[in-house]
Amino acid sequence: MQNHRYHILSTRELPADLLLAATEQGMDIEIRSFIQVTPIVSDTLKERIQPLLREHVHVVFTSANAVHAAADYMGGSYPAEWQVYCLDGATRHAVERRLHTDQRFITTDTHAKTLAAQIMAKGNVPAVVFFCGNKRRGELPDLLRQHGIPVEEIVVYDTTEAPVAVEKTYDGIFFFSPSAVSSFFSVNKLPPDTVCFAIGQTTAGALEPLTNNRIIVSTGTSAQQMVQTAIFYFNNN
């Protein structure tokens, strides 16, 4: 990689220190957001969420956006008796930081389907509350309902596609969600040599019907792991 600079497009914001670290490894990353996330503000949500803080409930998060949007309704209080099931990486970090949840009460996985399997394997989960966005994927709630576990979905944020036509050619593109995949490919086509990097299997699955390009799944669900995956790939190919 030292003899060639690689040009990457990231479809979401990345921390400045991570961009600098990538630059030092010969990778120049350009940021363009392809979705817009807007927390939902309503008295109805406040009236539903705040009583839950005092209850022993099983709660599911599959995105950090849902954690942040739900936490905004908590008014400085924290759920002491929530059993939280969430995806690893940014979502777990948001749970620990915004909900102050003890690690003993957090169950994680890297994929929604296997997270659902963990919930079912517990054997003592009467129902779950699923905080999500308006474009949530159905794998987890559908699987739980099929196995007799009721799911209350509380939609706390809206995701809107914000397509941008890309004129440059990139060596790789970072995709962090199926919504970003849909937004990107609604107005763009990729040259055959551009590599698609997906944050997880769900995002990779969204890419597969839209492109024949190589798809590389990140070794983990954090932005840092995505960057490290790309660095390793280009160093070895």
Score class of each variant (00 low, 15 high):
196 C>A: 15
210 L>E: 08
168 K>Y: 02
198 A>L: 11
169 T>E: 14
175 F>I: 11
178 P>S: 05
212 N>K: 12
156 V>D: 02
201 Q>D: 14
184 F>Q: 08
221 T>H: 03
195 V>Q: 05
212 N>A: 13
167 E>H: 14
202 T>C: 02
217 V>N: 00
203 T>P: 08
192 P>N: 07
184 F>V: 10
203 T>L: 12
194 T>D: 05
186 S>P: 01
174 F>V: 11
176 F>W: 08
220 G>Q: 07
192 P>F: 06
190 L>S: 03
225 Q>D: 10
158 D>M: 10
224 Q>Y: 03
187 V>R: 15
168 K>G: 00
221 T>K: 04
157 Y>Q: 03
211 T>F: 11
199 I>W: 05
155 V>C: 14
201 Q>P: 00
160 T>H: 14
182 S>F: 02
196 C>N: 07
209 P>K: 02
173 I>M: 09
203 T>K: 09
188 N>V: 07
156 V>A: 02
225 Q>G: 04
225 Q>I: 01
213 N>Q: 04
166 V>E: 14
192 P>S: 14
168 K>V: 01
222 S>M: 01
188 N>H: 05
208 E>N: 04
205 G>F: 09
162 A>S: 13
222 S>V: 00
205 G>Y: 07
160 T>L: 14
210 L>P: 02
229 T>A: 10
186 S>A: 14
166 V>D: 01
159 T>P: 03
191 P>W: 02
196 C>K: 06
200 G>E: 05
206 A>I: 11
195 V>R: 02
183 S>A: 14
209 P>F: 02
212 N>P: 00
167 E>D: 13
174 F>W: 13
187 V>I: 13
205 G>M: 12
189 K>L: 11
198 A>K: 05
192 P>I: 07
169 T>Y: 01
201 Q>V: 12
177 S>D: 10
215 I>W: 03
181 V>Q: 03
227 V>Q: 04
174 F>Q: 09
198 A>E: 06
231 I>T: 10
216 I>Y: 06
219 T>S: 08
214 R>T: 15
161 E>F: 03
215 I>G: 04
170 Y>Q: 09
185 F>V: 09
221 T>D: 07
195 V>H: 01
224 Q>R: 11
174 F>Y: 13
159 T>W: 12
